[in-house]
Design a protein around this nucleic acid. Structure first.
Length: 604
RNA sequence: GGUCUCGUAGCUCAGCUGGAUAGAGCAACUGCCUUCUAAGCAGUAGGUCAUAGGUUCGAAUCCUAUCGGGAUCACCA
């Protein structure tokens, strides 16, 4: 679904107008045709005069003149033939065009008329966005936060691009790792419950996952001392064998094991619900691995029939991927049991059965599974599923701690609940120090701390290109100055304050004749970009693109705010215009932050 | 070893579908609150865009190679 920017870019009227005029201009001046793609109007850099710039180097072959002369010729033609172009100047091969002020005023009017400015018309397409996908043997950690915030933001951005979106997660609720927690609880838990331990259910279960690992390691060491090699010891440790036995019983539907499994998973879900609520995310549809882990076998049979897969002598089934320069992939073991890939093939097909109008699935999964998804999509395509073309692995980089990887077995993780509580507490401290809290109720104050803290955390994780890995130092609290959510929220709050005062003073926001200054034009140009950026963020599945844009917009607004009076302006026309301008900046901030899952406060 | 990916200021990152003198934030230093919220604004300093070639009128951006970091190449999930 990756798409070139230019295709969309050209739909914007001013740029399109210029492109058409340049084509005509070249034809009229030099009598030749130019390639449309070689005309790319771009914003004029701030150090030069003008609003839009056309690079004329590509035309010099046609004109057989110097870049300067070519630009000069074209500039004269454009000023003469395009009424919105008022002036031009030439710097080397760059033709800088000045656009009439009325154009910018109209642009703002257009923005002002749309409450949902930037939102695309319905595309008729439906995408499923899978994110979170937790294991039910431990609480969520920082890595999940990145995953979940990313997936949520992508889902919202796609919606704003006019697509229908189904948010989903696949819950990894079965398997050996789950049995480990269950077994350790059975052995060492003494009937402990979330209530009795006064612990969130997911944390309680996670505690026993760590307990298992401790006991397991002890047994391994004992066996090694008894003379076994490490590999053998790992397989022979009694507690490990017990866990395997428990998994077998679960698969056979053993009542006692299943009851324990249900009880402990129930605790975990209660815990997850609380965490998700704090995070402010939701899902439309849930898939449980215990329901899906046997899926895919019929797809394998179908693949065998179509000769997409092949069966070896031992009965195992493989997909030959040498044409794709990938290693062959096993899909069914000799004993007929399936592997992870089989299950993912089955689940994808199941999802299309449930939603026949689905155009694609976006999987938000760490980059350690790049290869897995590459193979998955390749196999689905081989099986002839057309929708596989629009499946996408939203791959994100791992978050490491200063001393290395996070390991949940060893308990060296940054816990999601703790981190969120800490950052909200930081926000509380900072907010109280500033003391702009008059007139807020206790509830409103708490809400504000949460908006700032969680907003800061989300933005911190979203502003970096997803594919990049990052190191998180728990000692250094997350920065809330500079390119951060509070910076953006603050600008929003200041605008709200302006609007409130204007309202109290009964200032009109109706203007007739206005002269624009540079700061205002710069702002409108950026605001006009919002739909383009939103489209780009959707096409590239990149919330970071949106973050960068908001930051740029806010910086530009702050510059305006600092230098240009609004309420203190004596010319009532200008005052009204600036109110409308500010209000619409705030609107774009709120709309775009909402897509990132970040709230904006009216006061801070 | 094969494949993929990243390498831009002391640190964290933008910019990467080729365009002008490579931009922010943090940290350091300097100004600006009797004036719309100083979580702000303005400024100083800080760069061989990993390295070497190539394509181009033009390369941080595209191609090739090399170096360095990460991921992956399971009958684990």
């Amino acid at each position: 679904m990756r798409e070139k920017k230019s295709a969309f870019y050209c739909k914007l009227k001013m740029e399109e107008l210029i492109i058409q005029a340049v084509i005509k201009g070249i034809a009229s001046i030099y009598g030749a045709e130019v390639d449309v793609n070689s005309i790319q109007p771009q914003k004029t850099r701030k150090e030069f005069e003008g609003d839009l710039t056309v690079v004329v180097f590509p035309f010099t072959k046609i004109s057989k003149k110097s870049p300067e002369q070519t630009a000069e010729d074209l500039g004269n033609y454009l000023v003469e033939h395009v009424s919105q172009i008022t002036d031009f100047n030439v710097v080397k091969g760059f033709l800088n065009l000045s656009i009439a002020a009325e154009y910018w005023i109209k642009e703002l009017e257009n923005i002002n008329q749309h409450q949902q400015y930037g939102k695309a018309a319905p595309s008729g397409k439906t995408y499923m966005v899978e994110y979170s996908s937790p294991n039910t043997n431990k609480p969520l950690h920082l890595g999940h936060l990145r995953n979940i915030f990313l997936g949520y933001a992508v889902a919202e951005i796609l919606k704003a691009n006019g697509h229908s979106v189904i948010k989903t997660q696949i819950i990894n609720d079965r398997g050996i790792h789950i049995c480990k927690s269950m077994l350790a609880w059975q052995k060492f838990g003494k009937g402990e419950t979330p209530e009795s331990a006064n612990l969130k259910g997911d944390h309680l279960v996670g505690k026993y996952y760590v307990e298992f690992d401790k006991a397991y390691k002890k047994e391994i060491n004992r066996l090694i001392e008894e003379g076994l090699t490490k590999e053998v010891a790992e397989k022979e440790a009694p507690i490990f064998k017990e866990a395997q036995e428990m998994l077998r019983k679960w698969e056979q539907g053993d009542e006692e094991v299943v009851a324990l499994w249900k009880k402990m998973n129930g605790w975990v879900y209660e815990g997850f619900d609380v965490t998700y609520k704090t995070m402010g995310v939701d899902f439309d549809e849930l898939y449980y691995e215990s329901d899906t882990y046997l899926l895919g076998k019929s797809a394998v049979e179908e693949g065998l029939k179509k000769q997409v897969f092949e069966q070896k002598e031992d009965g195992s089934v493989w997909c030959n991927l040498s044409a794709e320069k990938l290693d062959d992939k096993l899909l069914l073991r000799a004993d007929g049991t399936s592997v992870y890939m089989t299950q993912d093939i089955g689940t994808a097909i199941e999802r299309y059965k449930n939603h026949p109008n689905l155009n694609g699935i976006i999987y938000t999964v760490g980059n350690e599974q790049n290869h897995h998804f590459n193979v998955l999509f390749t196999i689905l395509k081989k099986l002839g599923y057309k929708w596989a073309e629009e499946c996408h692995h939203l791959s994100y980089g791992m978050i490491a701690l200063p001393d290395g990887k996070m390991k949940s077995r060893e308990g060296t993780v940054v816990d999601a609940d703790e981190l969120m509580a800490e950052i909200v507490n930081d926000a509380k401290k900072m907010t109280q120090e500033r003391g702009h809290l008059d007139g807020l109720s206790q509830h409103e104050k708490e809400q504000l701390y949460a908006q700032i803290g969680l907003g800061g955390l989300k933005y911190f994780l979203l502003k970096v290109d997803a594919k990049k890995g990052m190191v998180f130092n728990p000692e250094e609290s997350i920065d809330l100055n500079g390119n951060t959510a509070p910076f953006i929220q603050y600008a929003y709050a200041r605008i709200q304050s302006l609007l409130k005062k204007a309202n109290e003073l009964n200032y009109s926001s109706i203007y007739t004749n206005v002269e624009l200054n540079e700061e205002e034009i710069t702002l409108i140009k950026l605001m006009k970009d919002y739909p383009i950026v939103l489209h780009e963020a959707g096409a590239n599945i990149s919330p970071a693109t949106l973050c960068n844009y908001i930051y740029e917009l806010v910086k530009t607004f702050n510059h305006f705010y600092q230098n240009i009076p609004v309420l203190r302006e004596e010319d009532k026309n200008k005052l009204a215009f600036r109110l409308v301008l500010s209000e619409n900046v705030a609107k774009i901030i709120a709309l775009s932050m909402k897509l990132l899952g970040i709230e904006v406060p009216t006061k801070m």
